[in-house]
Design a protein around this nucleic acid. Structure first.
Length: 420
RNA sequence: GGAGGGGUAGCGUAAUUGGUAACGCAGUGGUCUUGAAAACCACCGCCUUCGGGCUUGCAGGUUCGAGUCCUGUCCCCUCCGCCA
């Protein structure tokens, strides 16, 4: 959510900044609703002050044993006026709230102009795109031939966009999770294990709702939502709290993630790239505003170094305004080389959400001795998406004989196994 | 799932028939001190257009006035049942 005070002061300027995301918002509506709201609120507060005073007088008179029926009768009218004004305020307040919840975060000045992923700006590249002396296979072929990924039975058991990992596939999955969690822990992130089902308030807090309701799996009879990312439980940890502990707070968690992939029909239908359920190790940081930019750079390198240690070629791009997500103020995507696609494919996304989520989720901090509370900045990023990492390993490390070499750093997690 | 009990400031506790949220501890700032402790003073839930408004899990209702009465709901505890 954006700061209503800022919208009040400079609606045109903010609307202009949002154009960078290729979003057109009519903030005049907000300004009008806000003005109306404040006008009515002021009236209500005046009447309440009057009523409080009158009630106090009633109390005094009754204590003295005097009659107060005239005052009670008068004050009843004040109460009715308050009730009427409140009734007129409620829809305005609700409309304003609903509207504000749909306004995206403002991109930071360094975000490049552009509309689509083609306009993203490459920051740097790592590693050489592998040159094969034989005809390569896609990861879904490799996985099925090695008997470590079973898409067919996954369709039977669940449906399309699900997968089953078998034997060494399942072990590799677990090994990668352990590798990523250890890596994050060494860099000061506290490991957490969180719920996969969250309530609606949490989904609003991080900005999934209301805009992306159709993308979430809803557990209907109990009204829970399956998390689309561990960002949701991790960032909501401190919802409605004033943090007095020293910042930053750094968390990591492995969770499954669930996405309906509404609107992705026909895209990436083969393989592990786009699934309804996938594993991911997530990083979340809660920062003081003045540190969030350097924190983002740190988090980016936390994620990039995983690929470097596994010696997987990647490139990092800064997303242009039009390709950015709803709540992001600045986002880097890390894209791993995927031979079957013949291009780099997103494997991690690292974002600075500034105070956007903090305002929605009401997460504030107070430094010792300070009187005033301030909104924190929240950041999140994938350590890596695990399924896509498996895909990248299978494809980049495939051998002519159909087997796959295991990256050196992963071998200790597989009891020394060097090849599948 | 059933029955009972409970939710008040970070923690622990108060609040006559409904009368407008109190106290202790912890914490912060200050006085004093070489320094510290102790003692003392102030602050010690949120917002504010600085008038004031809000705040007893949350949302409503009754009332001039609700921690207190009513309805719904969430969470916690105990017991029973079921269960990995």
């Amino acid at each position: 959510m954006l700061d209503i005070r800022r919208i009040r002061q400079e609606p045109e300027h903010i609307a202009k900044l949002l154009l960078k995301k290729h979003v057109v918002v009519d903030l005049d509506v907000v300004k009008q609703l806000d003005a109306k709201k404040r006008e009515i609120t002021l009236q209500i507060e005046r009447l309440k002050a009057q009523r409080n005073q009158a009630s106090e007088s009633v109390s005094q008179r009754k204590k003295r044993g005097e009659d107060a029926s005239d005052l009670i009768a008068d004050t009843r009218l004040v109460g009715e006026q308050i009730k009427e004004l409140e009734a007129s305020l409620a829809p305005i307040d609700e409309e304003l709230r609903q509207f504000l919840l749909t306004v995206p975060n403002i991109p930071l000045p360094q975000v490049p102009e552009g509309e689509t992923a083609d306009d993203n700006v490459e920051i740097h590249k790592f590693g050489e795109v592998p040159a094969f002396s034989f005809s390569t296979k896609a990861h879904w072929e490799i996985g099925e031939q090695l008997g470590i990924i079973d898409f067919e039975r996954a369709r039977k058991v669940s449906g399309s966009r699900f997968n089953i990992l078998a034997g060494m596939g399942a072990r590799l999955n677990r090994a990668l999770i352990s590798f990523m969690l250890d890596h994050a822990r060494e860099r000061g992130y506290q490991e957490m294990a969180t719920p996969y089902l969250v309530n609606e308030t949490s989904m609003f807090g991080t900005g999934q709702f209301p805009k992306f309701v159709e993308d979430a799996f809803h557990v209907v009879p109990h009204d829970y939502y399956l998390i689309p990312t561990a960002e949701v439980p991790l960032t909501n940890l401190y919802r409605d709290e004033i943090i007095t502990a020293e910042l930053p707070l750094k968390f990591t968690a492995y969770t499954a993630s669930f996405r309906a992939e509404a609107g992705a029909a026909g895209r990436d239908t083969r393989g592990l790239i786009r699934q309804h359920q996938f594993d991911k190790v997530e990083l979340v940081r809660i920062e003081q505003p003045e540190h969030s930019l350097t924190a983002l750079e740190e988090m980016l390198s936390d994620a990039e170094s995983l690929l470097e240690e596994m010696e997987l070629p990647y490139r990092t791009v800064m997303l242009c305004g039009g390709d950015m997500g709803f709540g992001q103020a600045l986002t880097y995507d890390i894209e791993v080389w995927m031979p079957s696609y013949g291009k780099y494919v997103e494997i991690s996304s690292v974002s600075n959400m500034t105070d956007f989520q903090a305002r929605r989720a009401n997460i504030r901090y107070r430094t010792t001795g300070a009187k005033k509370t301030e909104l924190v900045h929240t950041l999140n990023g994938s350590a890596l998406a695990v399924g896509r990492t498996i895909a990248a390993i299978l494809e980049n490390y495939q051998l002519q004989n159909g087997h796959v070499r295991i990256p050196d750093v992963i071998r200790p997690y597989l009891g020394g196994t060097d090849q599948i």
